[in-house]
């Protein structure tokens, strides 16, 4: 089975559609949406609808911190993120908000764990920025493979039986065999707001038969997505950063 992992769509419809077109050519059997469907971008409603329809057809969806913040009584965000979420709150329908509120914090799938931010303290959404946090995350689960998003930059961590953790920045479109002698934490880049210096939309594909993880990048119509954010009156930084991927 080939599983596609889409994290941090952030209401970027152009990026989401480009990734779905790319995935359509890669014989994907199942899709997991790793959270943060909304926030930052100008198309939250359309993106939620796409994810909701996919979940109704068998895909898995997870709750991200931006999705949770749509419900004003729950998780609070800062600065531009809060400005965007207030705008988002006003444009989403009650049905769309209800779908987001119903998303789970984690999904366990055979020996794999999917969660938005980290296997450790998943409800407080910590960032896996390096070896230290990766180790915390891997220690909090016994899954052979944990897949997360949230940091907007792809990375792959692995831990030996003796508890040593090492990290690796994946090369685009190079399938990486995940040795069964160790446990793995795959951090997906963002579909809708990459921050690793490459503005192309990021997602990942895991093949359960070959036990290989592939990190893919898809160019999309950035100018269009940026123009919509600008037209919506959201903070300038949110459209400016799309073209630099920072």
């Amino acid at each position: 089975m080939r599983i596609a992992f889409l994290a941090d769509i952030h209401a970027n419809l152009e990026a989401l559609e480009a990734v779905r077109r790319d995935a359509a050519g890669r014989a994907i059997d199942r899709t997991i949406f790793l959270g943060d469907i909304v926030g930052y971008g100008a198309d939250p409603g359309a993106c939620v609808d796409i994810v909701r329809d996919a979940c109704a057809a068998g895909a898995g969806g997870l709750l991200g911190n931006h999705d949770e913040a749509v419900d004003a009584s729950r998780f609070k965000l800062n600065g531009n993120a809060e400005a965007a979420i207030q705008w988002t709150r006003a444009v989403l329908s009650a049905d769309q908000k209800a779908f987001l509120a119903g998303l789970p914090l984690s999904i366990t799938d055979e020996s794999r764990l999917y969660v938005h931010a980290s296997a450790a303290k998943s409800a407080s959404f910590p960032y896996v920025h390096g070896l230290h946090e990766a180790r915390d995350s891997l220690m909090a689960t016994d899954a052979k493979l944990a897949v997360v998003g949230h940091v907007h930059a792809p990375a792959l961590y692995h831990m030996t039986v003796t508890g040593k953790v090492m990290g690796f920045v994946p090369i685009i479109d190079t399938p990486i065999p995940l040795s069964t002698q160790r446990r793995w934490l795959a951090v997906m880049g963002a579909v809708g707001q990459p921050r690793d210096g490459n503005p192309a939309a990021a997602y990942g594909i895991y093949d359960t038969a070959t036990n290989e993880m592939t990190f893919a990048r898809v160019p999309y119509d950035i100018e269009r997505a940026a123009a919509k954010i600008r037209a919506a009156g959201l903070p300038d930084n949110l459209w400016q950063r799309l073209s630099t991927g920072r």
Binding site: L156, T160, K164, M166, F168, I171, T174, I176, P177
Partner: peptide, 11 residues
Amino acid sequence: HVQLPDLMDEE
């Protein structure tokens, strides 16, 4: 292998 994680490195 420059495109794969080096399991030996730093181990």
